[in-house]
Structures are given as structure tokens and as C-alpha cells.
């Protein structure tokens, strides 16, 4: 029993000094403890409520009560929500003009970047496909390639079908190297500067490429007709005049000595039409080139394997 030593004046009312001084063993100490019957009654009430609500199912007797309480509490909740939400959003509204301007600048820059990406997406896909094609070419022909891009196409007024690449003698290019694209033979380099190279396309009318029909290895010459955009741009004349080319047969290069100017086994195109030349008693085949010469972009220049400038090795791997 602790003794209360405080003066009575500090205890206005002082209703129950007994409670304050008692221990837990003292029955008076627990005057605030609920009667056992009350606890049991409350537990039973809870259980009864749960059972009634559970067995009631869809037409539970609790539902009207729920609805009534909802009618009262719902609007209050809506009111509190209406009042509180702007307060919750307040930190967002208190931002400075400067930070908002920074945000606008940042978002504009991001937007421009994203637009740029979107515009280039198709182009990048195409270039990726071309690069993959070049790697396949390098792997198939077992030659290393220097990747280059077409940066200029010679005007038709010059009556020669030439393009310019963005790689030159600095990257190891020399005249009479073979230029290929993912789809097949493009042409050969005729001249180089330090940073550019001029390529004579195989459709030029001075171009003559040794070709053979891939199916039967018959030899011939593929000559250009000097036009970029129309049909009948390439023509195959076979050495054996008795052999008649068949439509759809593939034509590949048969290669020059030392791989210059043309390496062997590069696809040129397929036989599109066959004419019989009565005067020369031979067959003339029009070749549909595999390469679209008006849409050249990424091409590969064949260099000796192990060349320090090669960007695609002979096994198709990219040189970093």
C-alpha cells in the first residue's frame, strides 16, 4: 500500500483515494474492470452478429444497417475527401516558377529526343538489317569487310553509274576492291581519296563482271546497261552458246585473279528474262539484280582478312 502524501488541496474532488493506493491484488483496484458477464455478452454479440451476417447471405439483416450508416458516413467522407485532397496536393502546387521552367525545358528536350528517335526508328532498323546482311556476306564469302556508307550518287548527266563511299585510303581501301551489299554485288572501287572512294556500279555500261550461273556453273559475262532506275539493267551473255539460261536461276561472280576487282561467289541477281539472239546465235539473259541501286546505304568493301581496318571479320564477327 503506497501512501498518498500529497496535500488534499491538490486533489480537487478526490473521489477515490483507494484506487490510487491499491495494488492489483486489491479487489477495489479493479473497479474499472468490466464484469465477466459484460465481456461474455460482447463476445457473444460479436459472434451472433457474424453468424447472422454470414447466414443471411444476400439478404442479410445487417445490410439495412450498413446502408443507413453509409447514408450518414458517406457524405461526411466525401466532404473530408474534398477538403483534404487539395491539401495533400499542396506540396505539388507550391513549386517555384524556376523549377517549373526547368521541367518544361527538360521535357521539351526529352520530347525532341524521342521524336528524333521515332523518326530514325525505321532507318535504324533498316541499317541493322543491312549490317546483319553484311555480316552474313562476310561469313559466306570468308572475306573481311570494311563497312561504309554511300554518301553521294553520281548524276545521270555524267553517263556513268557511280556512287561515293565515306571511307577511303585512310581505312585501307584501294582501287579495284569489291563492294558488296547485304543483297549481293554492288560494284568495284575505281578511285580513292583519303576519306572517300568512288564505286563503279555493275549496272554502269562500262562494267563487265565475270559471272556464272549458280546451278550449272556455266560461265559468262554480266554487262551493265548504264541506267539505275529502270528494268533491263544487267545482261548475261554465256560463253557456251548452246546453253540456255532458265528464268529464276541465280547468277554469282566467278572471281578474278587475286580477288581483284571481283571476288568469287558473290550473288549478282537472278535470271529474269531470256532472249535468243539470232544474229549471234547465242542466248542473252536479263538479270534482275539483287541490289536496289537507288536505295544503297550500308555497303561493305572486301579487304584481305586480318586487315587492321576491317570492321567485319571473315567469320561474321564485328570488330570493335
Amino acid at each position: 500500500m503506497a501512501i498518498d502524501t500529497r496535500p488534499p488541496s491538490s486533489r480537487p474532488g478526490a473521489p477515490s483515494p483507494v484506487r490510487r493506493t491499491s495494488t492489483s491484488r486489491d479487489p477495489e483496484r479493479d473497479s474499472g474492470r468490466p464484469a465477466r458477464s459484460l465481456v461474455v455478452a460482447l463476445v457473444l454479440a460479436c459472434a451472433a452478429l457474424m453468424v447472422v451476417d454470414k447466414t443471411g447471405g444476400e439478404s442479410s439483416p445487417v445490410d439495412p444497417v450498413r446502408r443507413a450508416v453509409g447514408e450518414v458516413v458517406g457524405p461526411v467522407q466525401a466532404g473530408v475527401s474534398t477538403v483534404v485532397r487539395p491539401l495533400v496536393d499542396l506540396p505539388g502546387a507550391l513549386r517555384t516558377n524556376g523549377s517549373l521552367r526547368d521541367d518544361v525545358d527538360r521535357l521539351e528536350a526529352e520530347n525532341a529526343g524521342l521524336r528524333n528517335q521515332l523518326a530514325k526508328a525505321g532507318y535504324d532498323e533498316q541499317r541493322l538489317a543491312q549490317l546483319a546482311g553484311l555480316r552474313a556476306v562476310a561469313r559466306d564469302s570468308a572475306h573481311a569487310l570494311v563497312a561504309a556508307r554511300v554518301i553521294a550518287i553520281g548524276p545521270a548527266q555524267s553517263f556513268s553509274s557511280t556512287v561515293t563511299l565515306d571511307a577511303g585510303s585512310d581505312t585501307g581501301l584501294r582501287p579495284d576492291m569489291t563492294v558488296v551489299a547485304a543483297e549481293g554485288l554492288v560494284g568495284r572501287i575505281t578511285s580513292v581519296t583519303a576519306h572517300t572512294a568512288t564505286v563503279l556500279l555493275i549496272v554502269d555500261d562500262t562494267s563487265s563482271v565475270g559471272g556464272r550461273i549458280g546451278d550449272n556453273l556455266e560461265l559468262g559475262f554480266v554487262r551493265g546497261h548504264g541506267t539505275l532506275g529502270t528494268d533491263d539493267r544487267l545482261e548475261l551473255e554465256l560463253a557456251d552458246r548452246n546453253v540456255m539460261p532458265q528464268v529464276g536461276q541465280p547468277v554469282v561472280t566467278w572471281g578474278s585473279e587475286g580477288g581483284s576487282p571481283y571476288i568469287a561467289g558473290i550473288p549478282i541477281g537472278t535470271v529474269g528474262k531470256v532472249y535468243e539472239s539470232l544474229r549471234e546465235t547465242s542466248y542473252r539473259a536479263v538479270i534482275t539484280p539483287g541490289v536496289d541501286f537507288t536505295a544503297l546505304d550500308l555497303v561493305g568493301v572486301v579487304v584481305p582478312s586480318g586487315d587492321q581496318h576491317a570492321t567485319i571479320e571473315a567469320d561474321g564477327s564485328l570488330v570493335p
Binding site: L49, M50, V52, D53, V62, V65, V69, V73, Q77
Partner: peptide
Amino acid sequence: DIAPPADHLAGR
């Protein structure tokens, strides 16, 4: 238990 948005059994 009965104020919205409660949807469980009343009494829990």
C-alpha cells in the same frame, strides 16, 4: 464493420 467501404462480415 458497417461504415462504408467495409464489405466483410459485420462483427469481425
